[in-house]
């Protein structure tokens, strides 16, 4: 069996999750505390990938990133980045596609904290940044874990966006979900089955671990 698609899938998921974690915290923090009028608009944009067919997202990204067009050619000429049919492109697409899976749990976690926690911290002379890092985030660990795992799992299961923007290039953009499709097309059911089984088991174990951790089963077991 060719392990490359699986390796590529998990590499993509790790990179995407790491980037999402860093950018989602400020977004979620802003959304949970602002009273700005543009908040509903931003919330809608963040949630769009939940309902939009992945092919729609993939199609627009394909158009936008194409070197034939202004944005794509600017990226290509000035930064030397080509986002179509490349791993970098997959990362950008996955970040956008999985954004709600990271932002929403963190935002919900932050909103659930009593506002007096951060107010107490401010009255002690602590900055917003210190308050976020030392008080708010440590108290929403289950939400952070949920966000990380959901975006990881969602990226692993991605198909439509990857197919549109990445194509099917072995070692570059051929992730496991594409490889399964490929093998089935070639009537190679045994190979398709091994990829599928691995994805199935891995995602099952990851999600099970999250529910066990957030449900406090490990803590009870340790006592």
């Amino acid at each position: 069996m060719d392990w490359q698609p699986l390796v590529l899938t998990f590499k993509l998921a790790v990179v995407t999750t790491a980037i999402l974690f860093v950018i989602s915290i400020p977004i979620a923090n802003w959304l949970s505390s602002t009273r700005s009028k543009i908040r509903p608009v931003l919330e809608t944009l963040v949630s769009m990938p939940l309902v939009l067919p992945p092919t729609v997202l993939g199609f627009y990204m394909l158009v936008a990133f194409s070197p034939e067009n202004a944005f794509g050619s600017w990226l290509n000429e000035w930064l030397g980045i080509r986002l179509i049919f490349s791993f970098e492109g997959l990362v950008v697409a996955s970040v956008i596609y999985s954004l709600p899976f990271m932002v929403q749990p963190i935002q919900a976690g932050l909103s659930s904290l009593p506002s007096t926690l951060k107010e107490a911290s401010y009255t002690m002379g602590k900055s917003k940044m210190t308050t976020l890092l030392k008080i708010l985030l440590p108290n929403i660990k289950p939400s952070l874990l949920t966000g990380i795992v959901l975006s990881f799992a969602h990226t692993v299961g991605e198909f439509g966006v990857v197919l549109m923007i990445g194509g099917n290039m072995p070692g570059k953009t051929k992730v496991a979900s594409i490889a399964i499709y490929d093998e089935v097309e070639a009537l190679n059911y045994a190979a398709a089955n091994s990829y599928s089984l691995i994805l199935f088991s891995v995602t099952f174990v990851i999600l099970l671990l999250v529910y066990l951790t957030n449900g406090g089963y490990f803590k009870r077991f340790a006592q």
Partner: peptide, 12 residues
């Protein structure tokens, strides 16, 4: 120095 009604102790 502000003492809140719900105490606002940091749970972590």
């Amino acid at each position: 120095g502000y003492v809140f009604q719900d105490y606002a102790l940091f749970p972590n």
